[in-house]
Amino acid sequence: MAGIVGYGSYVPRYRITVEEIAKQWGKDAVSIKNGLLVNEKTVPGMDEDTITISVQAAKYAVQRAGIDPKEIGAVYIGSESHPYAVKPSGTILIDALGIGPDVHVSDFEFACKAGTEAMYVAYSHVKAGNMDYAMGIGADTSQGAPGDALEFTASAGGSAFIMGKEHVVAEIEHTYSYTSDTADFWRREGRMYPKHGGRFTGEPAYFRHVVSAGQGMMEQAGMKAEDFSYAVFHMPNGKFPLRAGKRLGFTKKQIEPGWIVPWIGNTYSGASPTGLSATLDVAKPGDRILVVSFGSGAGSDAFVFRVTDEIEKIRNLAPGFKSMMDDHKIYLTYGEYAKFRGKIQLND
C-alpha cells in the first residue's frame, strides 16, 4: 500500500512572543494568549523563505527515506508565500537536492491547505503506479498585517513527505476532500498582506470544512474517533483545532502531540503537515492518525494514516520536531521582527 516513506520538518530559530507584539500595539497580551492559545511564533531569518525552508525539510525527508533523490519522480510545494510570483519554488529545490532533471515539478496554492494538496497529488501518483517516489511539501513564511489579529500567529515553517510503496512508515488508507466557495480569507494579486472576514473565518469557514471533512472521512472509512491514536487538525490558532476535535469526538490527548501551534504559531501550508510530522515522531506501529487540513477559500483534505513497523527504523535518522521547536531559540524585539519581515521601507 502507498504511503509515507520519509518525512522531515524545519522551523526557523527566531521567535517573537505574543507579549512583544501586543506591547507594540497597546493590546492586552493575557487576553490574546487566552483567546488564541498561542504563546509565541516562529519568524524566518532574513535569508529564509519558503524555498529554503522546503529544502531543509526535504533534505531531512530524503535522509529518513534513505533513497537516491534521483528516484523521486515528482516534487510539489504547496505555499501561499512562494518567493517568486512567476518562477516555481520547486525548480530551486530539485537542483538543491539533486533530483531530476527528469522530474515533474509544480507549485501549489490553496491558502493553508496547499501542503496537503501537494501530499495528496504525490500520493496519487505513487498509488496509480506512475512513479516509485513523489514528494509533497507544505511550507510558508506567512505575513499578517501590522496590528492585525493575524500578526500574533502568522509564522514560518514547513514539512516534506516522500510517498512510495516500499518500506512505508505510514500507509495512507483513506482520503477525502471537502471544498466550497467561501471567502473567509484572501489576498489579491500584488498585495503584501491578506484580508479576512473576522469572525466569519470561524463557523462558516474553518469549522464547517474541517468538521465536514472529518465526518466524511470517518464515514467513508467506517471508523470512529476512538479508532484513532492521534488526530491533527489545521491550527490557525490553539483553540480551533481543540474545538473541532471535540466536536468530532476526539480528546485533547489524541490531538496533543501534533498540537504545536502554541509554540510555533500558524505555519499556514506547513501547519497540519508539521503536526503530522510531530505526531509521527512519537507514534507507534499500528497507530492510526487522522489528519484534516484547512485552506481558506475554502476546503479541507482528510487522510487516514496507519503507522507501520518501519517507523522505528527511520525516526532517528533526522532531527525530531520537538528539539527544533524547543531548543536554541533566538527571541526578537518587535523592531527586529519588523526589519526581518521587510515591514520597514529602506532607501534604495
Binding site: G45, D47, E48, D49, I51, T52, V55, Q56, P83, Y84, A96
Partner: peptide, 14 residues
C-alpha cells in the same frame, strides 16, 4: 545549509 544569499534589486532574481 541552503539560504538566500541576496536579492538582485526589487525586480531581479533571488
Amino acid at each position: 545549509i541552503l539560504r538566500r544569499i541576496r536579492k538582485e534589486g526589487h525586480a531581479g532574481i533571488l
